[in-house]
Design a protein around this nucleic acid. Structure first.
Length: 515
RNA sequence: GACCCGGUAGCUCAAUCGGUAGAGCAACGGCCUUUUAAGCCGUAGGUCGUGGGUUCGAUUCCCACCCGGGUCACCA
């Protein structure tokens, strides 16, 4: 930055920020360090409030720290609220108590400043537990006003006035969103608890958490457009992974019978209510298990995740209608319905697989699938299934035994090679998990890779190449195994009834702002 | 990518059938020693998303673009 720009900086600030800079200067002039190194807290806010038993008027002295979130001056007294990660506590400043000099410094305080205070607890006329402040320290001056709204309790419900509600700004400036919205913090805290619970669940079943490459020379394990980057020293392209699958299964070849990974996958596709270019995927693989064993695992895992979210949300206002809050939703066993009979019943025919292409197009047109006559048979079947079955599923339900033509990565079903040993878990009409008895025949696998390579050569960007290294691993002998993939953003959205993925991700991908 | 909606003060919003804009909160000054959307009096604060066009005059009408949202397409 040039000297010229630097000197101009203050002139560019709006009047609100100028006033705060002036206060900062005034603090320094009075010998007060506006950005402290620490503060010796005795209690968190929520904890301090509980220290004064009902009926007691005066209590012990506490030291609490946090952000000023409300400020009501009355001349020679001031009431304020201080908020930390646990909650808020009222502060009472009195000129007689602090003395002229300390009380005068309070003129230089603003909403959003971090301060630390010390003083005894007491109960105000209205019964609120409050700190009678005997000393106060500035911990960090806020030079930019936070978009605080005002709050009011109406019939026991919190009503916000002039709240920070612009969705774009809340996503871009998540720090501000979190700073002024305790319920947003509660939601993301619940997400963290959900992830922890999933880790504990898998760890408890002897799964090993591993880390596999995000930068990959070949991408695979799903059908999606990748992000491409370049490694300078090796002078070669690298892809950001679209799935963890192939590396995790290499590890099972290596003798780790149960592995899982929680990490980001990257797909270079559109952004909408349920898609973010990077998202959190859980994949886990269990040697010697088939898909029916994995259904039991998924059922327990989902219940553990829901319990964690329910516990974390606790008494907060977040997600009153969240499925996680209703224990009954997760009471097992989850219903299991077979793909072909379910769809046949939905369409109203004895066996949907017996329909020819023309009949499928007709059925698709009846439910207003656009350009139905241009779609392939698998795509038509999928459209029909989404409409007649998926969208009607409310409580967690396993759909099992998909047609082979819809499931190129799954092993054929024992006793019926037209089907595969595959299940998907659905809830509220959305896919929660996808799992198979994993293909472990390297000859079959090579054939499927070759087919992909042909598609790729024909211009299908989502088709993958032949992964010779993965085939080599499989040729060494890959035990049979069950594998499951669960998109954690979507799982969390379901559990908390969050409608937009951007509200389930702390920093969703957005176009950059110009500054 | 297509279509629709939006972008006005720090925040939440209003208005202008074309004559350079208002409110509440926040801010600033004053009064107020138990308030809690504190109150009362006063003050200040805006390149009306950006760039062009039409016009005596554009925040308003037209065009393009940027940013966001929605619907659709895409995403097995």
């Amino acid at each position: 930055m040039s000297e010229e720009q630097k000197s101009d900086q203050r002139d560019d600030l709006n009047f609100v920020m100028k006033a705060r800079r002036d206060k900062l200067d005034a603090l320094v002039a009075r010998g007060i360090q506006p950005f402290a190194y620490g503060f010796d807290r005795s209690h968190q806010a929520a904890q301090a409030v509980t220290l004064l038993p009902e009926g007691q008027e005066e209590g012990e002295s506490v030291r609490v720290a946090g952000r000023i979130v409300a400020w009501r001056g009355h001349g020679k007294t001031i009431f304020a609220h201080l908020a930390d990660s646990t909650g808020r506590i009222q502060l009472y400043f009195k000129k007689d108590m602090l003395g002229d000099e300390q009380f005068g410094v309070l003129e230089l305080f603003d909403l959003g400043d971090h301060i630390g205070v010390r003083g005894p607890l007491f109960r105000t006329r209205t019964g609120e537990v409050t700190v009678r402040v005997e000393s106060v320290e500035m911990l960090a001056k806020a030079l930019r006003p936070l978009p605080f709204g005002k709050e009011e309790m109406v019939d026991g419900k919190l009503v916000r006035h002039s709240a920070f509600s612009d969705g774009e700004m809340r996503s871009r400036q998540r720090y501000a969103d979190l700073a002024v919205h305790p319920e947003v913090r509660a939601l993301f805290a619940a997400r963290s608890r959900m992830t922890s619970a999933i880790r504990s669940f898998l760890d408890g079943r002897d799964f090993l958490e591993v880390e596999t490459p995000v930068l990959q020379p070949l991408y695979g394990g799903a059908a999606a457009k990748p992000f491409i980057t370049h490694h300078n020293a090796l002078d070669m392209p690298l892809y950001l992974r679209i799935a963890d699958e192939l590396y995790l299964k290499r590890l099972v070849v290596g003798g780790f019978d149960r592995v899982y990974e929680i990490g980001h996958d990257f797909r270079n596709e559109g952004i909408d209510r349920t898609h973010n270019p990077e998202f959190t995927m859980l994949e886990f693989y269990q040697a010697y298990a088939d898909y029916s064993e994995m259904m039991d695992v998924v059922e327990s895992l989902l219940t553990a995740a829901a319990t964690a979210v329910r516990t974390a949300l606790g008494g907060t206002d977040v997600g009153a209608d969240a499925p996680a809050r209703d224990e009954a939703v997760f009471a097992g066993p989850f219903p299991r319905i077979e793909w072909v009979p379910a769809l046949s019943a939905g369409v109203g025919v004895p066996n949907v697989m017996a329909l020819d292409h023309g009949q499928l197009i007709k059925a698709a047109e009846q439910i207003n699938v656009p350009k139905a006559n241009t779609l392939s048979r698998p795509k038509l079947l999928d459209e029909l299934f989404q409409h007649h079955v998926e969208s009607n599923i409310d409580r967690p339900t396993f759909v099992i035994d998909y047609p082979l033509e819809l499931s190129p990565l799954a092993k054929p079903k024992r006793g019926n090679p037209a089907l595969t040993e595959r299940f998907e878990l659905f809830a509220k009409g959305k896919e929660m998990a996808n799992a198979f008895s994993e293909l472990n025949d390297p000859i079959d696998q090579r054939g499927r890779f070759d087919a992909q390579a042909t598609l790729r050569a024909a211009g299908d960007e989502e088709a993958t190449g032949v992964d010779e290294d993965y085939l080599r691993a499989m040729e060494y002998g890959m035990p049979p195994m069950g594998g499951v993939g669960i998109g954690l953003d979507r799982l969390f959205m379901y559990l908390t009834a969050t409608a937009h993925i951007r509200d389930a991700i702390l920093f969703p991908t957005m176009r950059p702002e110009s500054f």
